[in-house]
């Protein structure tokens, strides 16, 4: 008997931001990331009959998105020679003439930081998806999109008092959700 079931009617509300963050971390282009999320949902609908219910809905969608990202890179690298790395020697620099000196330092902190930030982003999105929809929306608009209090109130038809109560509840819930690993 399957443990999980698909509910495509909830996909956008529950997983769109999570998948979008996953995609954008890999393709660094928000328009492309949006397209990949859309393609993932459509592919999910088409292959819904193959879903056995062993994995959680989100895990299954992420697996589809991973394939979409791989397909994207295969497509752009498919023409012969496109994947080659071209390095031009320059004579005006004193250092870095040796090819080895131009390769990224594997011990540099940069890579670790970006992986940690991505994990953090996914953890926040995971916790956000567990909040009531309105709280998550108000939190996202204020904290992530940086919208003004007035604009949010006008768009959602709420007053500033309601907005701050919702943001406060959202933040309190997020602190509880992320408590174990990040605080």
């Amino acid at each position: 008997m399957p443990v999980h079931q698909l509910h495509p009617e909830n996909w956008v509300d529950l997983y769109a931001d999570y998948l979008f963050n996953y995609a954008i971390a890999r393709v660094s282009d928000s328009e492309l990331a949006k397209d990949l999320v859309q393609d993932t949902f459509i592919a999910g609908l088409k292959s819904a009959k193959n879903y056995k219910g062993d994995a959680a809905e989100r895990t299954w969608l992420i697996a589809i998105l991973k394939r979409k990202v791989i397909d994207h890179y295969r497509k752009i690298n498919s023409k012969k020679g496109k994947a080659e790395v071209r390095i031009n020697y320059s004579s005006d620099e004193g250092e870095g003439d040796w090819l080895e000196e131009r390769v990224a330092d594997p011990y540099s902190k940069g890579g670790d930081d970006s992986i940690e930030n991505e994990e953090l982003g996914m953890a926040i999105q995971d916790c956000l998806s567990k909040l009531p929809k309105k709280q998550a929306t108000v939190f996202s608009m204020k904290t992530i999109q940086g919208m003004s209090t007035e604009d949010i109130c006008n768009e959602l038809g709420i007053n500033p008092s309601n907005l701050w109560v919702m943001i406060h509840r959202a933040r309190t819930a997020l602190m509880g959700c992320m408590n174990e690993n990040w605080f």
Binding site: A33, N117, L120, G121, I124, T143
Partner: peptide
């Protein structure tokens, strides 16, 4: 944490 996470979200 929210600042470091570089969070992105889809608009409504």
């Amino acid at each position: 944490l929210c600042e470091h996470a570089n969070l992105q979200t889809l608009s409504e």
